[in-house]
Every structure is written in C-alpha cells, then in structure tokens.
Design a binder for these strands. Structure first.
Length: 504
RNA sequence: GCCCCCAUCGUCUAGAGGCCUAGGACGCCACCCUUUCAAGGUGGAGAUCACCGGUUCGAAUCCGGUUGGGGGCACCA
C-alpha cells in the first residue's frame, strides 16, 4: 500500500517513564489537530523501550489524561487489555522486538552497523580524555573495523557486544515544517549505539523502524528532537525507508525561559486536573503556546481548533507557560458552564455528604468567583463545616462594621436577628432576607454594606464570601440563627480594649 | 567546547515590504458598577520590533554580521 494513498499519518509516541507532561500533551495536541484538520490518521504508540524506567502506572496516567483532554486517536494499544486497534500493531515497543531484531540484522548484513565491545568504563575514559583536549565527545571508532580474529578473541574473553550504527560522513539536509531548511554535518557525529549489550534496542533506532512500519508521513515533535533528526535520517536511509516530513515545534518554557521542567514548574497534567482546571481551558491554552489562528479570537473549543489549525502557522520561538493566563482562561470556561454543568464538575471536589441539590444551588453563587474548581471548598466551606468550626475562623474584631466597634457590631446583629428570626422556613429566601436587612440598615441610617459585614462574618466565618443572602438561604434558617448567636457570644467575650480601627 | 535553533510590550501573540505614529489578550494601575470578593464596563501605563550594517523610493517584515537566549551532543527518550 503506497503511503501516498493513505493521507497524512501522524503519531504521538509518549514514553511511560513519568506522568503525562505538559509538553507531551501539547505535542500530542498538535499532532491530533493536524490529523483532524487534514482528515488524516492519528496513531498512539507507547515508547517503553526503557524497561527500567517505564511503568504501567505512568502509561495509565498518560492515556487517562489524553482522554481527559479530549485527544482521541485512531490506532493504538488497547487499554483494557484486549487487542490493539489498527493494522500496524502492536503499538507498544516492548512488544515489537522481532521487527527490531530483523532490521538490526539487515543493518549488520549490509555493513551499516557493527558490534562494539567497548565497556562503559572504556568509553567514559575516552570521553574524559576528549574533554581535556577540547574535542567533541564522540565515539572513537575503535571497534569500527575489527577483524574476525579480534572479534573472536573479545568474545572468548566474555565481552558482550553493543551494536553501533556506522554514520556516513555526509551533510544531511531536510525541510522542517516549522523551521524551514535545516542542515547538519553528520561527519561531526560519532557512531551511536542502536542496541545495548543487553540486547535492548535504543530510541534513535526504534523510532525510525516504527515510524516506517506504521507508515507515518509526518513526524511532529518537540524542538529538543531536532538534533536527533540527522541521526534518524541516516538510519532510515540505510534501511531504505521513505523519508517522512519533519516538523519541530517550539519548547514550552519555565518562567526563566529554560525548557519547562518538573524542578521549576508544575509539569504533570494530572496536577492541573486535580486542582480543577478544565480540560477545555487546558487545551485552549496549550494550543496557543506556539500557535495562533492569525486573528484576534482566542477562545476555541477542540473541534474549532482542529478546524483552524495550520502547522505552518506554528511559531519558531519557545513559549513561557504563563499560569496567570491559564487561570484567566479557566475562569472564562467555568463562567460559560450552565449551573447544571458546573454542579456536575464541582461534585468531585466537594464532600460526598453534601446533597446534590445543594451543590446545584451553590453553582450560581460561586460560578464567577472560581478560578479553579478546587477553589470551591474555600468559598463554600461554611456550608459543610460545623457552626463551631466556622466560629473559629474569625476573631471577634472582624465582626466590627467598618469604622465602628464591638457595640455597633452587637447592635447590628441584634437588630438583624430580630428582623429575620420571625421569617418561617418557607420564606427563608435570599430576596426576602435582603429586603429585611436593607430595612434594618435604613432604620439605623447605616450604609447597607456596613451592616452586612458583621452578618457576613457571622454566617460564613470570613470577611470575603459568596453573595451573603444566597449563602444564608443555602445554609438554612436554623444554622444561620445559631451562627448569629455564636457571633454575639464572641463579641461578649471580646476584651473591651479592642479598637474599632483594627478591623480593616 | 562542538553542532543546531531562536529573537515584536513582563507574558501569550497579530504582523508574510507601504494598511504600523506596531494591533489584541493576560497581568498591572485608575475609575465606574457593587452587600464583601469576584465578574462586568471604561480608561491608562507598558515594545526606539535585541543590536549593527546592507538591499529597497520604503523594512518589524528580505540579506549578512554581532550580542543574547535556548536545545542537543548517553549502552535515556
């Protein structure tokens, strides 16, 4: 089947040596967008050749989070343990050993690869020497042209061989989708190892074999792979494969403009997910790290992105991961949710004991105040914490109305209490409560805000809260009255010396 | 050290030779709205387009160099 009849085939090749990384997610997203935009095929391949560092937990995390982001693929490993999906499986490198062995043999037979008996210690010594002489660190070529006799001796001595690729000394040029014409002089490269002495095939070899076997037409990956490309082109030529189109997208950066790392930034998608970032916001944000539609629009759903995405419009320079901007976008997406949708998304962040109807009722109160879903507990903690706990959240002085003292606070609470206490449960609603409270304010000739403050602190335990009367409606009559009593008691216990000016 | 890549407000970016006295967004500041906080509205500060030299009637846009930054140089991926 000639590749030209298959359309664009792209792949994502995560390595399960850690949880899904922000950079991997973005690369994955760009590949997905390219496939969807062009009606091509998207392949997921798990690069688990590093058996020491790969774990099933990480693979699980990667796949779960890709799903969470809404990134779908057409071919890939079967997650639930059944068969792989697609005609070019298996899609885990750990299951493709046979192919690798066959291709290594072809390279060996053609003289494009050879056995190397140098030990890691010997190699290390050479590198040190090269460093001293300010020479580029590369393989010396000691085993490059071993005679059969020499080889036999080394093997008799019990030496295990790694297999090195014989790099042709030539200039390699390719046209990069985002960077244009790029050229490297492979004469500067040393012969690199493609199969370790323990028999494990290595990255720069297996990617090439798999990309060819899976008919990958476009290799879109991070810029950190740019310098691997000439090596891979050399291997692919030796194997007689068709050359894919390469595209190296810019890196995502730490605030100091170095490559985004765990050390300096939050890099795992799971961590953002757990804080309550929406996948829609994350996808939108990630897409704009290195790309823009060329217009001033900036809020896009995944299908809209796929519709607009052009790989040619991807930037060359790296982009700093700006958390403030992610926060903003997350707020935009949260506000665009209906109350029902928001309640559903909030559910996992709230105590199970909280009733669904309460969660739904609180949605409009918190919607425009949430940056992350996880912030909800800080906003409505007063609803599910006990009256006693809430009372510990504030000092008596915080009950004082602006510019006033304890006596005023007490008076305010007493009058408010008298005004709302007679309300039956059936009338315990935000609008009525507000009407009563405003009447009290008018009677006392206070600004409403000054009067509401002690009440807010008494009810929610904080000086900053969701809308007061809606909060009271949610809390219910009995608990509100109890909390006003608690506040009054706190005022009584307060040392008289407390100054009215301390409440700012 | 060697190789490669990159360079527009603090950040993400628009910009494909004249539409640019460089536009938008985030962030920041002020004001308005307002029961707090948000959200929203209005306005503002913020970039001699890294620098130097070409090409051109004309350059943020093209070319060269410099500087700065980044990435890569494994029996990791």
């Amino acid at each position: 089947m000639p590749p030209e009849f298959e359309g664009i085939r792209v792949r994502m090749a995560p390595s399960p040596t850690g949880p899904l990384h922000v950079g991997t997610a973005r690369t994955s997203l760009y590949n997905h967008l390219l496939a969807r935009h062009t009606g091509g095929t998207y392949v997921l391949r798990i690069e688990d050749t590093d058996r020491a560092r790969s774990t099933v937990e990480h693979e699980r995390d990667i796949i779960d989070n890709l799903h969470w982001l809404g990134i779908t693929w057409d071919e890939g490993p079967q997650v639930a343990g059944g068969d792989d999906i697609g005609p070019f499986g298996p899609y885990r490198q750990s299951q493709r050993a046979e192919l690798y062995a066959a291709e290594v043999q072809r390279l060996l037979d053609a003289g494009s690869a050879y056995r190397c008996y140098c030990t890691p210690e010997e190699l290390e010594a050479v590198h040190l020497e090269q460093e001293h002489r300010h020479e580029p660190p590369r393989y010396s070529g000691r085993c490059r042209d071993l005679t059969d006799v020499a080889r036999a001796e080394l093997e008799a001595a019990g030496r295990r061989a790694a297999i090195r690729f014989r790099v042709p000394a030539e200039v390699v040029r390719f046209s990069d989708l985002v960077r244009g014409e790029v050229e490297f002089d492979n004469a500067l490269l040393g012969d690199f190892v493609i199969v370790r002495a323990d028999g494990a095939p290595l990255y720069n070899f297996v990617v090439v074999v798999d990309d060819a076997a899976m008919h990958i037409s476009h290799v879109i990956r991070g810029e950190d792979h740019l310098s691997n490309t000439p090596k891979q082109i050399a291997v692919l030529r030796a194997l007689g494969y068709r050359e894919p189109v390469f595209g190296h997208i810019p890196l995502i950066l730490n605030p100091d403009r170095s490559k985004m790392s765990k050390r300096k930034s939050q890099t795992s998608i799971t961590a953002y997910r757990e804080q309550g970032y929406l996948p829609e916001a994350m996808v939108n944000f990630l897409a704009f790290l290195g790309w823009s539609p060329g217009t001033e629009e900036e809020v896009f759903t995944l299908p809209e992105l796929a519709d607009r995405f052009e790989i040619e419009h991807v930037h060359k320079a790296g982009a700093v991961f700006d958390l403030a901007r992610l926060d903003y976008l997350n707020g935009v997406y949260i506000r665009s949710l209906t109350d029902e949708q928001l309640a559903l998304r909030l559910r996992p962040f709230l105590p199970a004991a909280l009733e669904d109807r309460t969660v739904l009722a609180m949605a409009p109160l918190v919607k425009e105040r949430l940056v992350r879903l996880g912030d909800v507990t800080g906003l409505v903690g007063f609803l599910f914490e006990s009256d006693a706990t809430v009372a510990t959240w504030y000092e008596a002085a915080e009950l004082h109305p602006k510019g006033r003292g304890a006596q005023d606070a007490e008076q305010a609470l007493n009058r408010l209490q008298a005004a709302i206490e007679p309300l039956p449960d059936a009338d315990w609603a935000a609008d009525l409560l507000e009407t009563r409270a405003r009447e009290v304010a008018a009677e006392m000739a206070w600004k409403p805000g000054d009067l509401f403050k002690p009440l807010r602190v008494a009810i929610t335990g904080r000086t900053v809260s969701p809308p007061l009367f809606g909060s009271m409606e949610l809390l219910g009559r009995d608990r509100c009255m109890a909390r006003i009593d608690d506040a009054l008691r706190k005022l009584e216990a307060e040392p008289v010396s407390a100054s009215p000016a301390t409440d700012r």
